Amino acid sequence: MEKKSYTFDEIKQKLVNYCVYQDRCHAEVEQKMRDFLLIPEAKDEIFLYLMKENYLNEERFTRSYIRGKFYIKHWGKTKIKINLKQKGVTEKLISKSMDEIDDEDYEKTIRKIYEDYFSKQKGLKEYQKKSKTIKYLLSRGFEYDVVLDLMNKD
């Protein structure tokens, strides 16, 4: 299939639209740029433009990603961190942005997931239910010590 070739301005506009549609991280924009086979100078120019005009903002992306994954998907901080790192977001920015998650909300969410999952375990001994529930919470990306704290409060 013949690849359509775009002018520099068309590509720039496509990347603006890509960023406007949803907050993006640098790595996602970088990936998208590969589709257009741009020379490095053109890439740099577009990157600078997107940042200068605030279409591309790594901190805003990180903060909205954290909010979405916690408040909508109910992921734990560990899972969020791992996924952000895979997107090339720095440890420093991730740590700084974790304040998007309210501590009380975090605890309530873990407790709710714990209770829902625990109550669904049928025909198991108490300790088996507990152990399965701990594994489940860890798989959702909640930290081991936080999960244990929760268990000890019961």
Rank of each mutant, 00 (worst) to 15 (best):
C19A: 06
C19S: 03
K12E: 03
D102Q: 10
E100N: 01
T109Y: 00
L48F: 09
T90Q: 01
E59M: 09
M1Q: 12
K129D: 09
N54K: 14
D44C: 07
L137F: 09
A27V: 10
F36W: 13
K73M: 04
E28F: 11
D154N: 01
K73D: 07
I72M: 14
Q121M: 07
E100F: 03
G68S: 11
R34Q: 11
E10M: 02
V29C: 05
G88A: 03
W75D: 01
C25R: 12
K3H: 14
Y49A: 11
C25H: 07
K132R: 12
F36D: 05
A42L: 11
D44P: 03
L93R: 11
L50V: 05
K32Q: 10
K130Q: 10
F70Y: 07
D44K: 15
E91H: 08
D105W: 13
M1W: 14
Y55W: 13
L37T: 08
Y106S: 01
R60Y: 15
P40E: 05
Y106K: 03
M1T: 09
Y106F: 04
Q31Y: 14
K43R: 15
D149W: 01
M51Y: 10
I110C: 03
E41C: 03
R63D: 04
K79N: 07
K77V: 01
E91R: 08
R140P: 01
F47W: 07
Y144D: 09
L15C: 08
R63A: 01
E107N: 06
K73T: 02
M1I: 07
